[in-house]
Amino acid sequence: MSVSIQDSTQICAGFRAFADPLRLQIIELLRSQELCVCELCEQLEVNQSKLSFHLKNLKDANLVNSRQQGRWMYYSLNLVQFVILEQYLAEYRHLGTILPAQTCE
């Protein structure tokens, strides 16, 4: 699998987004259903400005979709991006056992 510059940028953004505990909690909450930003704030016990920062990171990484209904934003997982990240990692399974590098003496 050859990764283009654009693909590598999206893959990096996706893995970078996973590097924060609060963003992982958001992803876990969205695993089973779409949620309103107010529901996420309540369940995570964080203020909306902090949550908005993390949702923007997830959205920039293409891991979540958003839609507006009335005055509220609703978020859901973008499963297509999860599949892209999963396929990227799956390519390494085909390498078999990777041995540690030998040191020069």
Results as ranks from 00 to 15, higher is better:
Met73Asp: 04
Ser52Gln: 12
Cys36Phe: 03
Cys36Gln: 13
Leu22Thr: 06
Phe15Ala: 03
Met73Lys: 09
Pro21Asn: 13
Leu55Asn: 06
Lys59Gly: 05
Gln68Phe: 03
Leu63His: 03
Lys59Pro: 00
Asn57Phe: 09
Gln43Ala: 12
Phe53Ser: 13
Met73Ser: 11
Leu40His: 04
Ser76Ala: 14
Gln68Trp: 02
Glu42Gly: 03
Leu77Asn: 15
Leu30Trp: 00
Phe15Pro: 00
Tyr75Trp: 15
His54Glu: 14
Asn62Tyr: 12
Met73Ala: 10
Asn47Thr: 05
Ala17Val: 06
Trp72Tyr: 09
Ala13Pro: 02
Pro21Thr: 13
Cys41Gln: 15
Arg71Ser: 12
Ser52Thr: 10
Val46Thr: 11
Glu45Phe: 03
Gly70Met: 02
Glu45Asn: 14
Ser66Pro: 00
Lys50Tyr: 07
Glu45Ile: 03
Ser66Val: 05
Trp72Ile: 02
Arg31Ala: 11
Leu22His: 00
Gln33Phe: 02
Lys50Trp: 01
Cys36Thr: 11
Ser66Ala: 07
Glu42Leu: 04
Leu35Asn: 09
Ser32Asp: 15
Leu77Met: 15
Trp72Cys: 10
Met73Val: 06
Lys56Tyr: 10
Gln68Tyr: 04
Ser76Asp: 10
Leu58Asn: 11
Glu42Arg: 14
Ser32Gly: 11
Ile26Lys: 03
Asn65Trp: 07
